[in-house]
Write a protein that binds this DNA or RNA. Structure first.
Lengths: 219, 219
DNA sequence: ATAATAAGTTAGATCATTCTAACAAATTTG
DNA sequence: CAAATTTGTTAGAATGATCTAACTTATTAT
């Protein structure tokens, strides 16, 4: 069984390889806030337990066993976030830290009950997919709002970043998952977008924001 | 901040000193399933952080700081057990292992929400008191059923032991907290008690069982 | 293509938590 | 009370996870 530390390495490797493709020691070290020698030695030890494939000076790859383990930890994280929001009244900006701890709890029934109580959700509160209990994750291909064209109507479905600050920014603009937006115009100078939705007939979103908002195009 | 390991030592010290009075290194080691040298060195280090008072060859005592910390961990444990039983459909015999892990989560709001959702309970599912958020625990003085006399009517209110096996035994006899029992007779030979309750007009409870059942005397 | 920079590795140390072996103190018992 | 037993301590080692310093390999840029 992986230790909590090992679980964090597996999760980081899983997330980084889904966004960056290959994972270098330096990226891993940066993401886990440890030094490169620490990441290096941990990767060697993960290799001994068949969680990763690794050769000196080469990028790190998760084995199928490592991928499944990582996905199941992410499953626990996302189920927990959903439970905190839907069943315990937390805001979507408050759940990450708690879920980060609860994801390491070893108690299958605890997470099965959460899943059941939530009606087997496929998304977490930030629109990220919840892997199934075999560690399989549906890949959705959402469009970043930043690539949408004026005139399009879209629905906010997920985020590429779920930092507290970003979520609080979205709260302040009353932007929640499910919100329907109409793209009014794009400013050529800074690529900011002007959108309208609900009681916000004219809201400007910077490029930084609009590329972190993933949408489904309605028309 | 205490590590998970340290928290477990504090909890063990708290529980042992409430049942045995003074706590020896050997009792502590036994209770935590570690060797005596391990317990010894940990106690020395707990002393450095002002969690305990300790002198060579003397019993260990929690400082007020240590007592409060321990009580707050026990609070998290018992709130969790109650939450699992009342809000997530667990049986009282299944909650200990999970709570043992969740008690180490650092997330005040998580436990505050549990407390609120449960209506600020003062007892866990086994009748043990839940310390308040300042670490104060109400001491109840319940009577062991084993000391009751034939003719008395009592209500089962708590247990001195909450092992899975004992809880499953109670389940099998449909003995739950709140059950009203009438003591019919005591067998002088083995000190077993014959009791009646609900649909059980004639149930024999061994001394081992009856001394673990804490009751409130009704008449 | 060589020099500069970035990335990765090795060596060696530290800290927390644990162990066993050996010894010492305290307690119990004949 | 002295011997036997139990309890507690010290010493020394192991493991996991981390670090810094020094060195090596790989990549980038002039």
């Amino acid at each position: 069984m992986a230790s909590t530390t090992e679980e964090n390495y597996l999760k980081a490797l899983y997330n980084l390889s889904n966004t960056q493709g290959e994972v270098n020691i330096s990226e891993l070290a940066l993401s886990l806030k440890v030094s490169m020698p620490t990441a290096n030695s941990m990767v060697k030890s993960l290799q001994k337990s068949d969680w990763v494939i690794y050769e000196k000076y080469k990028p790190v790859t998760l084995t199928p066993k490592g991928q499944k383990e990582a996905a199941l930890i992410i499953r626990k994280h996302r189920l927990t976030e959903m439970f905190l929001v839907k069943k315990m009244g937390f805001g979507w900006e408050e759940v990450h830290e708690v879920a980060e701890q609860i994801e390491h709890i070893h108690a299958p029934k605890f997470f099965e009950r959460m899943d059941e109580m939530l009606g087997y959700p496929t998304m977490d509160p930030h629109g990220s997919p919840i892997p199934d209990n075999q560690g399989r994750m549906k890949e959705f291909s959402y469009t970043p709002l930043s690539t949408c064209k004026p005139g399009q109507t879209v629905q906010l479905t997920a985020l590429t970043n779920s930092s507290t600050e970003f979520l609080e920014f979205l709260n302040s603009r009353k932007l929640a998952l499910g919100t329907e937006l109409k793209v009014l115009s794009r400013e050529v100078y800074d690529l900011s977008l002007v959108v309208s939705y609900a009681n916000h007939p004219n809201e400007t979103l910077s490029e930084k924001v609009s590329e972190r908002l993933l949408v489904r195009i309605l028309k």
